[in-house]
Amino acid sequence: MRYLVLFILCMIIWILLTFSLELNNIIVGAVVSVLTSVIFGRYFIKNTSKFFQPKRYFWFIIYLIIFLWECLKANFDVAYRVLHPAMPIRPGIVKVKLNLRSVTARMMLANSITMTPGTLSVDLKDDILYVHWIYVSTTDPEIYGLKVAGRFEKYIKRIFD
């Protein structure tokens, strides 16, 4: 089942990238997609029934809007710190505990954290995420856990977990 889902995803991306519906193009795409799904299928998401729940797509769209807003804020934040003559930075690496169970959800959260203001995920050990933070405002673990991961955790839990 997961091989089939991965094959269909590869095929969609191939058709979008080449943007032609000729027969020989589709045959090449199918061969490449079969190879990809045979080699990488075992690393793919285990529970493929998640793909067929419309609720998850709905939350994904809401998450995307919030994420884009945070991403824009992140960019203005970094631009401000870079252009400010005194460079207001207080960097450090902090530990954040995650409440997510599935591997995909953790991966998405780590990627989202990398794109949000001032944070960059360094390493993921079981359910502890190490985050490099450009401006460490507090040294209280509970508060910065909320500040770093709290914004996205509930949405990602609904989408991927």
Binding site: I89, R90, P91, G92, I93, V94, K95, V122, D123, K125, Y130, V136, T139
Partner: peptide, 15 residues
């Protein structure tokens, strides 16, 4: 190494 301005480093033990 982390830069001189760094405040906190909780990754050290794990690394």
């Amino acid at each position: 190494k982390l830069g001189d301005q760094s405040v906190i480093d909780e990754y050290k033990d794990e690394a």
